[in-house]
Nucleic acid binder design. Structure first.
Lengths: 298, 298
DNA sequence: TGAAGCCATGAGTATTTCTCATAGATTGAT
DNA sequence: ATCAATCTATGAGAAATACTCATGGCTTCA
């Protein structure tokens, strides 16, 4: 069987010209190389070099093998480099799953520095999962999950990266705009705008309206955050969004965030990964970076 | 160091699905494969598979390596095939050197069947040598030499393949055309046409004219055999060529061959090869074929 | 002709790779 | 749940392989 070491031998001999030098460059004794060549030629049933005195001339078989060596050796080396990077976690593909719609804005702030810190790691963001975010993690559709529900489970590892308050967004001139906080009953006559997900997963229902058995007059679903805010700014309804996000948009739009309930709705975002990926450097890097971005938003 | 065997392993596991089956297909015990993988993964510093129970899923590093395996393994196999053919002498390049101008016609009759008997062997014919035919053999410019002078020399091997008589070619109606044989003095008033080589290498001089201290009236040199014969047919001179060749052309041209001297000039053509190439099957094949063609020309 | 450099070879050692035997894990059927 | 079948992991010893050392022959060049 032709082995990589054989290719290395023929390439080294070609490069150095003599067996002795080739042996040195291969970190072998001259004797070892001589034995190796003898054995290889015997196995192949053909000489690789014609040896006239001390002159080496490749036979046709040797030429073929040298050709192969020059073609394959660089590929071996390249893949070894890649594998080394994988081993150090310096290279890979990071597939991020999102279970938190408004976090998209925040995610962009993490991804940008990440891409420049990890130039060899590709990033992809997925938002739809057949079996939920955790299912996507377990089925290797994603490598990291951005979620507000850290469903503890063996095999997964969650890191909190992001605390914020969920507030009600209203138009500047809205009747509720200047209250210290709103109560569920305030929304009975309002049009609520939300992302298109099941109500159980909307905090404004599960933590605010539903406990008080209130429902808004109307409920519209909109996918894009800025369109949602355009609607609010146009006085066409109210929405529930992270406070930091509202404050950002408030600089250019006539909108305002108002606390929901006396305590407000406190939220926390977690990053979940498979425990088996814990040692991947770029995953750790991503989580670390996410923690840094968090503080600048508080 | 990534080895071919490692590529074979990852490819076999990919193809068979389980380590046990892969081991069988590699003619290894399950244990050996397990040890090999363990060691490889340890060397690389990264796992190649995630093992969930008995399910194997390639890691990113494993994917890379499988990619490499699928690219390189066929190339290894192809080259091994080639080398096997070289070893059996079934493939190669046969470079033929010619030191016998008129033999070109004969050579064509050998090459044609040779090419079909040895479809994997390429043929090239060379006629000019910086250091003579033997030098060309020794310097590996050619692999086989067609020559009338078997200069015995250690390292070379000659095989006679071809006996013929060198005759004088004259026009049908030429005064010498009907003699049983010509003598040197007959040529004193003739124009001799020959290939452009040194006179010592022309038999008509060395074996016929020179011993009798005769020279022809004029001597013209022409490279192409059929042009030479056109000249003869036009009555512009006489030439010395193999009898069989003259007979062939005589069917369509008004020319005739006449014996030179009472005994005629007997010639023999040899094929010379390097002794180190003696075992090359296609060389032996060529020589054998050359022998067969000879008989049909006698 | 001798010195230096190169290659081949045999013998012994070191290392690697394999097998055998065994045990733990997982899967699927009863 | 239990059992059988199948798969994988591991340790230990055996077999095979690869390497080094020591040496000698050959080639080249001054």
């Amino acid at each position: 069987m032709l082995e990589r070491s054989h290719l290395a031998i023929i390439a080294a001999v070609d490069a150095r010209g003599t067996l002795t030098e080739a042996a040195t460059s291969l970190h072998l004794s001259q004797s070892a190389l001589s034995h190796a060549i003898r054995k290889l030629e015997h196995q192949l049933g053909t000489a690789l070099w014609e040896k006239e005195g001390r002159l080496l001339r490749l036979t046709q078989a040797g030429e073929q093998m040298l050709l192969l060596a020059k073609r394959l050796l660089p590929q071996f080396e390249h893949t070894e480099q890649l594998l080394k990077q994988f081993a150090r976690g310096q290279r890979g593909a990071l597939r991020i799953g999102m279970e938190c719609h408004p976090c998209y804005q925040w995610l962009l702030k993490v991804i940008t520095p990440f891409l420049s810190e990890w130039p060899d790691v590709d990033v992809d963001v997925k938002q739809k999962f057949q079996f939920g975010g955790i299912g996507a993690l377990f089925s290797y559709d994603i490598d990291i999950l951005v979620t507000p529900d850290p469903l503890r489970q063996s095999g997964l590892l969650y890191t909190p990266v992001f605390d914020y308050e969920q507030v009600l967004v209203v138009h500047n001139e809205h009747g509720l705009a200047h209250k210290t906080y709103v109560v569920p009953e305030d929304l009975i006559d309002e049009t609520l705008i939300s992302y298109p997900v099941e109500r159980e997963r909307l905090d404004i229902y599960s933590e605010f309206l539903s406990p008080a058995k209130c429902v808004p007059k109307e409920h519209k679903e909109i996918e894009a955050t800025n369109i949602m805010l355009q609607m609010v700014a146009a006085g066409r309804g109210v929405a529930a969004l992270p406070k930091w996000l509202v404050e950002e948009y408030a600089q250019t739009m006539p909108i305002r965030g108002v606390r929901m309930g006396k305590q407000g709705i406190a939220k926390q975002i977690f990053l979940g990964i498979r425990r088996s990926d814990e040692s991947l450097a770029y995953l750790a890097g991503f989580i670390e970076l996410a923690g840094r971005v968090q503080t600048s938003l508080k």
